[in-house]
C-alpha cells in the first residue's frame, strides 16, 4: 500500500522533497565533517564540557519531571474543557500555545520580569525570604519548563482525546474512584502519547538556549548548559563549539532513536 501511494505522487514533488531533505541533513553533515576528531576526546572530557553536559542532563530531566507533574493534569483539564465557555477555553489554549511561538529570549525577559529581583513575584519573594531565583540552577529548570512543557501538554491532550472514554466508565463501574481510574486506567492507556510528549519535552529542554541565558544567566557548573557552552565556545574556540554541538546532537538523537524503537511504536 505505501508503495502504491508513493507511485501516485506528482513527479514535481520529488525534487522539492529532495531539497528539503538536503536542507535538513547537510548542515549536520557539515558539522560532522568539521569535527576535529583527533582532539574531540580531549575537548569532550575537559572539565567545562563535562560540567555543561551533566548540568544539561540534570536540568532537562528536572524540567521533564516538572512538566509531567504539572502538564499531565493541565492536559487532562484541556481534554475535558469542551463544555466550557468559549472565551475561557480559548484563553487556556492560548496560555499553552503562546510559549511555543514566543521567541525564547522574550520568554526569558518575561520570566525575569516575574521572578527577577525586581519582578512581580520575585521582589516580594526576595524581601520576605531573601531567596532570589535568577542565576541559579532552579532558574534554568524554570526556563526550560516554560518553553518545553507545552510540547508535553499538547501531546498528552491529543492522546487523551483519542482514548476511548468507555474505559473510564468501565473502571468506575468496577468501583474505581476518579483518581484511581485516572491513574490506573486512563494514564496507562495514553502511555505512548505521554512518553512521546516527555521525549519531545526533554529534547526541547536540552536544547533550550535563549530563555535560559536571559533568565538564568551563564555560569559554569551552575547555569551554563550545553547549548550556552557551545555558543560561547563559538566566540573563543570554534573547535570546542563544534564538539559540544556534536555532543548535544548525539545525546538528542540517542534519546529519540532509543525511545522510538522501544516504546513509541507500541501505541501508534
Amino acid at each position: 500500500m505505501p508503495r502504491r501511494e508513493a507511485a501516485r505522487l506528482p513527479a514535481a514533488l520529488w525534487p522539492l522533497a529532495g531539497i528539503a531533505v538536503l536542507l535538513l541533513v547537510l548542515p549536520l553533515v557539515a558539522l560532522l565533517i568539521r569535527v576535529p576528531w583527533r582532539d574531540a576526546a580531549a575537548l569532550l572530557t575537559a572539565g567545562e564540557s563535562l560540567e555543561a553536559l551533566t548540568l544539561s542532563l540534570g536540568t532537562a530531566l528536572a524540567a521533564t519531571g516538572a512538566s509531567l507533574l504539572l502538564g499531565v493534569p493541565l492536559a487532562a483539564v484541556l481534554a475535558g474543557s469542551d463544555g466550557w465557555a468559549a472565551p475561557v477555553r480559548r484563553l487556556l489554549r492560548a496560555a499553552v500555545t503562546v510559549p511555543l511561538v514566543l521567541p525564547p529570549v522574550v520568554a526569558g525577559i518575561a520570566l525575569l520580569l516575574l521572578l527577577g529581583r525586581q519582578g512581580v513575584i520575585g521582589a516580594p519573594l526576595a524581601a520576605l525570604t531573601g531567596v532570589t531565583v535568577p542565576f541559579t540552577t532552579p532558574a534554568v529548570v524554570i526556563a526550560q519548563t516554560f518553553v518545553s512543557m507545552p510540547f508535553l501538554v499538547l501531546a498528552v491532550e491529543g492522546a487523551l482525546r483519542g482514548a476511548d472514554p468507555r474505559y473510564a466508565v468501565v473502571a468506575a463501574s468496577l468501583g474505581a474512584s476518579r483518581w484511581h481510574a485516572f491513574r490506573r486506567v486512563t494514564l496507562p492507556l495514553v502511555a505512548p502519547g505521554l512518553l512521546s510528549g516527555a521525549v519531545l519535552c526533554f529534547t526541547r529542554a536540552l536544547g533550550e538556549f535563549g530563555a535560559t541565558i536571559t533568565f538564568a544567566g551563564s555560569f559554569p557548573g551552575v547555569t551554563r548548559t550545553l547549548p550556552i557552552a557551545a555558543y560561547l565556545g563559538l566566540q573563543a574556540s570554534p573547535e570546542s563549539a563544534i564538539v559540544l554541538a556534536l555532543l548535544l546532537l548525539v545525546v538528542s538523537v540517542v534519546v529519540l532513536v532509543s525511545l522510538r524503537d522501544k516504546w513509541l511504536r507500541v501505541g501508534s
Binding site: F135, I213, T214, G217, S218, F219, P220, R224, I228, L232
Partner: peptide
C-alpha cells in the same frame, strides 16, 4: 561573578 554573559549588551540588560 554570578553570570558570565555572551556579550556586553546582555550584561547591560
Amino acid at each position: 561573578a554570578d553570570t558570565l554573559e555572551q556579550d556586553v549588551k546582555a550584561v547591560l540588560t
